[in-house]
């Protein structure tokens, strides 16, 4: 995994501070080309991993990267699935079972029909889950997806319910079908590590809010620090700036002082911000390595 990963919240009107800013971003990025322009800047700055939701519009980005494979030789996607809003909305309308049925591929593939139908009939979630994963992965066909993530809303929902088998099913399908590493995004890192341990997922890749002020770090910053020191996992930090509450330099320095954090995922919309984040990351990684 690279040290810096590029996130996609800024492209889809997600902003934890202000609805106005979120709307301005949604307007700015409504043309896919404007997203591609920013991705190009990041890529040319050496940030080659795009950690992105399986949002419909990502399919257009994927198609673009596929079409220009020479330009994007080292471009990596880390898909984060599912795009939860569509399922939540469908669940409101059709209930849990109805929602699942709606998103199963309906091309009449024998395999899909068997896996889906049998699985639904036997109340066995394995078949349905793997089908849903395949449906979400379709847009990345032919592209490099070395790590595939389960989104935090789903991870934390399953974690809360105690639906731990789902993590195992996800992990094994992602490995066997896509040759990828499973990743998990969560707001409840200490609790998730225990659950992943229980289902035998070793040294997992886990992406969580990790920042100096403990913003959205459920279980508390001490439990996170303890996990970083004592547990075997590959940590990706998100929300390192705590939605702007921590100055960039202070935020990055704090991250770099914790060598157990393998990567940082960040979002930015301008060359200046991308460049300065990378520069800070390089500077403090070097500084602290020397120290």
């Amino acid at each position: 995994m690279d040290r810096l990963l590029f996130g996609d919240n800024q492209f889809f009107g997600v902003n934890h501070m202000s609805e106005e800013k979120a709307r301005a971003q949604a307007m700015r990025f409504q043309n896919t080309q404007s997203i591609i322009d920013v991705l190009d800047v990041a890529y040319d700055e050496g940030i080659r991993t795009f950690m992105c939701t399986t949002h419909d519009r990502i399919a257009e980005i994927a198609a673009h990267v596929r079409a220009k494979s020479a330009r994007y030789r080292d471009f990596l996607f880390y898909p984060c699935m599912p795009y939860a809003h569509k399922y939540a909305n469908a669940m409101t309308d059709y209930g849990m079972l109805g929602a699942v049925k709606r998103f199963l591929p309906d091309e009449g593939l024998l395999d899909a029909a068997m896996r889906g139908g049998m699985s639904l009939a036997k109340k066995d979630i394995e078949g349905v889950t793997t089908l849903l994963i395949d449906a979400e992965m379709k847009m990345f066909q032919g592209l490099k997806t070395p790590v595939i993530f389960l989104q935090n809303v789903v991870v934390d929902f399953l974690l809360g319910l105690g639906f731990r088998d789902a993590f195992r099913i996800f992990a094994s399908h992602v490995k066997s079908r896509y040759g990828a590493e499973p990743g998990f995004i969560t707001m409840n890192l200490p609790m998730l590590l225990d659950a992943l341990d229980e289902v035998g997922i070793e040294n997992p890749i886990v992406c969580a809010n990790i920042n100096k002020i403990g913003f959205r770090m459920c279980g508390g910053i001490d439990a996170y620090e303890h996990a970083l020191r004592e547990r075997q996992f590959r940590a990706i930090a998100m929300s390192v700036f705590a939605s702007g509450a921590i100055a960039p330099e202070e935020a990055i320095r704090w991250i770099c002082e914790r060598p157990q954090i393998k990567s940082v995922v960040f979002g930015a919309s301008s060359r200046a911000n991308i460049r300065s984040t990378r520069a800070l990351m390089d500077q403090y990684s070097r500084l602290l390595r020397v120290a």
Binding site: M187, G214, R216, C218
Partner: peptide
């Protein structure tokens, strides 16, 4: 004043504190 600054932590987070 931002919600993120004023919100006390919760024991478990799924979809909003």
């Amino acid at each position: 004043r931002y919600t993120t600054d004023m919100t006390p932590p919760v024991w478990f987070y799924v979809r909003g504190e």
